[in-house]
Amino acid sequence: MSVVFTWLLRTIGIGGVAFLGLYIYDWGIPGASRIPYLSSIPILGDLTTGRAHSYAADQVKLATSNMVTKFERDTIAAQLAEEKRRRLIADQLHTEASKRADAAERAKSKAEADLEARIAADISPDGGRWTEEDQQWNGKR
């Protein structure tokens, strides 16, 4: 490795070696990014893929993560809309049930008032008035 570096230093000079080093740092070694798993090795991966390709890969990951986030956001919005729809239906059903309960309470109060009125209207000496059916049941005892 040092033989290659020395040869390059003699051939193209220190400026050429610096230029070549910066070029490799920025763009990587041509074709090396196609080697599987080479870019996942910490230092060697940075040199082989280059800063430009690493930046591009990071941007792809960022865009993909935003797409997933957008999908999740759309899913949550759909769930929220469904929950609002169900809440509206539940509120309507609750209102109808309350109206029916109020009507049943009024009917019960009216029936009790009618019964009290019939009881108050019944004035016989023994406190009750016997009907014909009551007489038949009384006779069977």
Rank of each mutant, 00 (worst) to 15 (best):
L20K: 02
G21K: 04
L22K: 05
Y23C: 06
Y23G: 09
I24Q: 01
Y25W: 13
Y25C: 06
D26K: 11
W27Q: 05
W27D: 02
W27H: 12
I29D: 00
P30F: 00
G31I: 01
A32Y: 01
R34Y: 05
Y37L: 07
Y37C: 00
I41E: 00
L44N: 01
L44R: 07
L47I: 15
L47P: 00
T49L: 12
H53N: 15
H53V: 13
S54E: 09
Y55H: 12
Y55R: 10
A56E: 11
D58M: 14
Q59I: 13
K61N: 12
K61R: 13
L62W: 08
A63G: 09
T64E: 15
T64C: 04
S65L: 14
S65Q: 13
N66F: 11
V68S: 05
V68T: 09
T69A: 12
F71W: 15
E72A: 07
R73M: 14
T75S: 11
T75E: 10
T75P: 03
A77L: 11
A77K: 05
A78M: 07
Q79G: 09
Q79V: 04
E82I: 10
K84V: 04
R87D: 12
A90M: 07
Q92K: 11
L93Q: 09
H94N: 11
T95P: 01
T95Q: 13
E96Q: 12
R100C: 04
A101R: 12
A101H: 11
A103Y: 07
A104G: 06
E105Q: 14
R106K: 13
K108C: 08
S109C: 05
A111P: 00
A111S: 08
E112L: 13
E112D: 15
A113R: 01
D114M: 02
D114L: 05
D114W: 01
D114R: 00
L115F: 07
E116C: 04
R118A: 14
I119M: 14
S124T: 04
S124W: 09
S124M: 11
E132D: 12
E133T: 07
E133I: 10
D134N: 05
Q135R: 10
